[in-house]
């Protein structure tokens, strides 16, 4: 078996509630690289993100997903996380009654061979929260409960910082952020970037890509990747939109 260090998506077909949404996606994310996926609403970006993470509602009918050579297509979400995959949700779920601190500590311990000491955990959490300009009291709040849109996105990045995944998928982490928050979140992501981590950034806006510089840009329309390019492709899309990529309408 190949021990290729990469997140490799091969000919991925995905069905949701009897409808084929992804119609053959091929994409490879290497450590140290940033890939951006852009595309119109409903194109299948979140479907790809959920499928990578193993959401039970998304059925892979063809193709496979390899993480550093291991086929993770049938793995449970927690096993994928342990293998080093992370998804920052477009719409993070709230968990009433469970504090951020407890949640984070459980997650950190679940993804490591050895549990961290409560002291080390608290120290790291505080540091990371400070970097994301999150107030200490956040640690005591219930997961995403009553968080503003921007707070939820910061909390996603906080989780990423604590879990230190090898491959991270960020699904519209920029939406709902004001200019300052966008910079803080982008700084947070950039601080984690390095030769060890590969990132797949899903976004509608060139703006985010000014902060998180992509190596590659892909355009996802109608469940297919219809164009690949470098950062210049994002600029082009900003000018001309997706019209030329849209499949001819049924009408």
């Amino acid at each position: 078996m190949s021990e290729q260090q990469e997140l490799k998506i091969e000919n991925l077909h995905v069905r949701v509630e009897d409808q084929e949404i992804l119609k053959g996606i091929d994409l490879t994310v290497e450590p140290g690289k940033v890939h951006a996926i852009m595309g119109p609403n409903g194109g299948g970006k979140s479907t790809l993100a959920y499928t990578l993470m193993g959401h039970p509602g998304y059925e892979v009918t063809e193709g496979r997903i390899l993480l550093d050579g291991t086929d993770i297509t049938e793995m449970a979400p927690d096993e994928r996380a342990k293998a080093g995959l992370f998804l920052a949700f477009q719409y993070p779920h709230s968990i009433p009654g469970v504090t951020m601190a407890n949640f984070l500590r459980t997650a950190v311990n679940a993804t490591r061979p050895e549990p961290v000491s409560p002291r080390d955990f608290r120290k790291t959490m505080r540091e990371q929260m400070a970097l994301l300009k999150m107030k200490d009291e956040f640690a005591g709040r219930y997961v995403n409960e009553g968080f503003s849109g921007g707070e939820k996105k910061r909390a996603e990045i906080l989780q990423m910082a604590m879990l230190q995944p090898k491959y991270a998928v960020l699904d519209e982490t920029d939406s709902g952020l004001d200019i300052d928050a966008l910079r803080i979140v982008a700084d947070g992501v950039n601080a984690l970037l390095g030769p060890e981590m590969g990132v797949l950034v899903i976004t509608h806006y060139q703006r985010l890509l000014n902060y998180i510089k992509p190596d590659y840009v892909h355009v996802l329309v109608g469940g297919r990747i219809v164009a690949n390019g470098g950062p210049e492709l994002a600029l082009e899309l900003e000018r001309s939109g997706y019209e030329k990529f849209e499949p001819p309408s049924a009408a």
Binding site: M53, G54, H55, P56, A76, P77, D78, R80, A81, K82, F86, L87, F89, P92, H93, I95, F103, T106, A107, A110, T111, Q159, L163
Partner: peptide, 8 residues
Amino acid sequence: FYLMSRGI
């Protein structure tokens, strides 16, 4: 799913 996606 959210919790499991964090390795739990």
